[in-house]
């Protein structure tokens, strides 16, 4: 098995009764890559991501995540991935420090590790003076950046970001992507879904799902050439218009 592939999926399929949510998707994601996972609502992105993160069993096909099989080894997968959901996922009634301690705690990290890394992260986010404030009192952009830091606190091989920048202003979104680049530089692979096409441009490679299938997969530049489009927006519209199902 190729150690450089963090995700391999081969004809991965998920059916709910008659409905095929994810239809034989095949792709690979390389270590340290920022992989954009695009698709209209209902295209099957979330289902695919749930299968890869061990939340849901595939109906058929093969997949490995961080070198582990999604059917049999989902416990090992869980130890090696991070996850940030589209809903804001920190506890508002806990302080910044308590949130970090809790998430690090459920990943079984040692006290010394938690202490050192907490100091580093707070410093990095310029939030040292907010450490003992309740998360609920922070502005949304800060919460979002904190949530990302928490999702990669345990230094996973791979982090899933499910529409991480929903409802965030453009400036914060830029800062957020800065953090994603920094994480990728340390070797963490980033698997990100988004609706913002300007964000798709930031990715190393982008896949676009339509009706449960991956219709296109290339670098943003490559996609634009293939579809004769000037922006990712156009590429996406051309593909998504062909979709038969919607939410």
């Amino acid at each position: 098995m190729d150690n450089n592939k963090v995700i391999t999926a081969h004809e991965l399929t998920k059916r709910f009764g008659d409905f095929t949510a994810v239809d034989k998707i095949t792709f690979e994601v390389t270590r340290g890559e920022i992989f954009g996972f695009l698709g209209a609502n209902g295209a099957g992105k979330t289902t695919a991501m749930r299968m890869l993160s061990g939340l849901s069993l595939p109906t058929s096909g093969q997949a490995t995540v961080a070198g582990f099989d999604v059917y049999k080894q989902n416990e090992q997968i869980k130890k090696n991935i991070g996850y940030m959901s589209q809903k804001f996922s920190l506890y508002e009634d806990l302080t910044v420090k308590e949130n970090i301690r809790f998430y690090a705690g459920i990943y079984g990290k040692s006290d010394a590790f938690i202490k050192e890394k907490t100091g580093y992260i707070l410093d990095h986010l310029h939030m040292t003076s907010e450490a003992n404030k309740l998360v609920g009192s922070l502005p949304l952009g800060w919460k979002q950046k904190l949530a990302f830091s928490v999702a990669i606190f345990h230094e996973p091989q791979l982090v899933f970001l499910d529409e991480p920048t929903g409802g965030v202003d453009p400036v914060t979104r830029r800062e957020f992507w800065q953090m994603i680049y920094e994480a990728a530089e340390t070797g963490i692979t980033v698997f990100v879904t988004t609706h913002y096409m300007d964000e798709a441009e930031y990715c190393n490679r982008v896949s676009i799902m339509v009706d449960g299938r991956i219709e296109a997969l290339d670098t943003p530049g490559g996609l634009k050439r293939t579809f004769g489009a000037r922006s990712m927006d156009e590429v996406f519209l051309k593909l998504a218009r062909a979709a038969k199902r919607s939410e």
């Binding site: 991935i81 809903k87 459920i106 079984g108």
Partner: peptide
């Protein structure tokens, strides 16, 4: 409701 359960389920817990 808040989505933290999902994060919990993805964790090794």
């Amino acid at each position: 409701e808040t989505g933290t359960m999902e994060v919990m389920l993805v964790s090794p817990m």
